[in-house]
């Protein structure tokens, strides 16, 4: 592996650990500030939202297969299926559309 990998891994693990360790080792007082509590509550959703869209549309070989996967993932997530189920079903939809584009459409025309 390249040195960049090791440096990034060290930074990743170090930052994640320090965030968990410092408050546990140092603080004894409880956070009362409502804004900070709410901000920390919303952060994971805001992060994942920004990471997912529009990037999801460019995550496969074509926008069409990605859109199909996106649709399937939204419906199954709304039905509150598990993480692995949603993820793999989205992959299945992508695969189905990719196969159609690559094999079925050229064969028919």
């Amino acid at each position: 592996m390249k040195t960049g990998f090791w440096l990034n891994l060290a930074v990743m693990a170090g930052v994640t650990y320090l965030i968990r360790m410092v408050p546990l080792a140092v603080f004894k007082r409880k956070l009362e500030n409502e804004w900070i509590q709410s901000f920390l509550y919303y952060i994971p959703y805001a992060v994942l939202g920004a990471m997912t869209f529009p990037e999801i549309l460019f995550s496969t070989d074509s926008v069409w297969s990605a859109a199909a996967g996106f649709l399937v993932a939204i419906v199954l997530s709304y039905l509150e299926k598990g993480l692995l189920t949603v993820a793999l079903s989205a992959c299945g939809a992508v695969l189905a559309v990719e196969c159609t584009i690559q094999y079925l459409i050229p064969a028919l025309s």
Partner: peptide, 18 residues
């Protein structure tokens, strides 16, 4: 290559129910 979308599918499964 189809697995490329899996990570985003998982993110949706985390954010949509709440």
């Amino acid at each position: 290559s189809a697995l490329g979308i899996a990570i985003y599918g998982m993110f949706l499964a985390i954010i949509i129910p709440p």
